[in-house]
């Protein structure tokens, strides 16, 4: 979809979740003897990864909630073209129910911001209170369980 231009668009989340976004993506200094801690406790490499995951969880539980106090966190150009953009379009499709004017970047983002905002609290619960000792393993456990329940 070479013509979909996300280059100048910014992605917004609810300001109240901003610190949690930082917490879950923050790159920490390694320290001797505990070098895996970063990946184990910080389950997302980048904010776009966390945003897409939150949007997926929101859509999964049909939890759509547009941000009230918006805070921009990254440029939409940071999304991965091969996986994340098609998924975001699919999430917009879920909300619109039609392919008519589906490929409008601003609209796609706006809808996904609603899914991500709705799903963020669910995702946060999974990561912080799920099964397993560390957030990354809780996420892994969730993915594997969901796959088994399919």
């Amino acid at each position: 979809m070479a013509k979909l231009d996300f280059s100048n668009l910014r992605v917004y989340i609810d300001d109240s979740n901003h610190y949690k976004y930082i917490e879950l993506t923050k790159s920490q200094e390694n320290q001797s003897g505990d070098k895996q801690s970063q990946a184990e406790d910080v389950p997302f490499m980048k904010m776009p990864d966390l945003f897409v995951a939150a949007a997926c969880v929101g859509a999964k539980y049909d939890n759509y909630k547009e941000p009230t106090k918006k805070k921009d966190i990254f440029l939409a150009a940071a999304f991965d073209q091969k996986t994340q953009i098609p998924v975001l379009i699919s999430l917009a499709y879920k909300k619109l129910g039609t392919t008519e004017n589906l490929l409008e970047p601003r609209q796609i983002l706006k809808i996904c911001e609603g899914w991500a905002n709705g799903g963020f609290s669910n995702l946060y619960d999974i990561l912080i209170e799920g099964k397993g000792l560390r957030p990354l393993y809780r996420l892994v456990d969730y993915i594997i369980n969901e796959q088994q329940n399919e």
């Binding site: 389950p43 997302f44 897409v52 995951a53 997926c56 859509a59 998924v87 990354l136 993915i143 969901e146």
Partner: peptide, 20 residues
């Protein structure tokens, strides 16, 4: 594992992807 989970999590909305 962390790299893979960020893509694998999208599996939870697979029905939506398949619908589209």
């Amino acid at each position: 594992l962390r790299n893979a989970t960020s893509i694998a999590i999208m599996d939870i909305i697979l029905p939506t992807l398949l619908d589209l």
